[in-house]
Design a protein around this nucleic acid. Structure first.
Length: 182
DNA sequence: TTCTGGATTATCT
DNA sequence: GATAATCCAGAAC
């Protein structure tokens, strides 16, 4: 189980170490295969313009969940690192509670259950009520990566600013990515 | 108080 | 490949 001190580091460092780790919410989840780092100096980050009511948890203590809604339809789950920085969880390889995920997402191949931030949140049952929850206490559970993994890096996806910052981290060769690494 | 755009996904052609 | 769906924070007035 990862403690809050694990997250009290620069977001890119945390991102790299999260690849291969296991994320569970109420026992549902799997291995993290894709994340992106954001910090307060990053124009693509919600924290770029400073603290606001919506992103205040990003400026709070490390090791908490930051959840927001995008395009009015989907939720995205972030792990707060140092104040103003966070790691966006983009994809997970389903390992636990797959039946529950398929119930929430509809019957579909496992590779499509969590292959994107919005899908991941839906599969795990994450919404705004989870915003600000601690990651080292139930119903969340984050387990350290077991063994060595080959990490791939590249430009982040779906943003309009700061695209040149290569802070996307993936598990190389995983079939559960939102988009294959170039 | 009103207006606009977004770290996305599903669906249609 | 293109586009609609749909809500809230932040900016503008």
């Amino acid at each position: 189980m990862l403690s809050k001190s694990f997250f009290d580091r620069p977001a890119p460092d945390v991102s790299r170490d999260l690849i291969g780790a296991t994320l569970l919410y109420e026992g549902v989840g799997g291995m993290i295969v894709e994340v992106e780092a954001y910090d307060e100096a990053d124009p693509a980050s919600h924290s770029f313009a400073g603290p606001t009511p919506r992103n205040r948890v990003m400026f709070g203590p490390a090791g908490h969940a930051y959840v927001y809604k995008i395009y009015g339809i989907h939720y995205c789950l972030n792990f707060v690192c140092r104040p103003g920085s966070a790691v966006l969880i983009r994809a997970v390889e389903p390992l636990h509670g797959i039946a529950t995920m398929q119930m929430r997402r509809g019957a579909m191949p496992e590779k499509n259950l969590c292959s994107g931030p919005g899908k991941l949140a839906q599969a795990l049952g994450i919404d705004l009520t989870q915003n600000g929850l601690a990651l080292d206490a139930p119903p969340f559970e984050v387990l350290a990566a077991d063994g060595v993994h080959e990490i791939g890096m590249g430009p982040r996806i779906g943003i309009t600013k700061g695209v040149e910052t290569p802070w996307r981290y993936v598990l190389s060769g995983s079939r559960y990515l939102s988009k294959p690494m170039a």
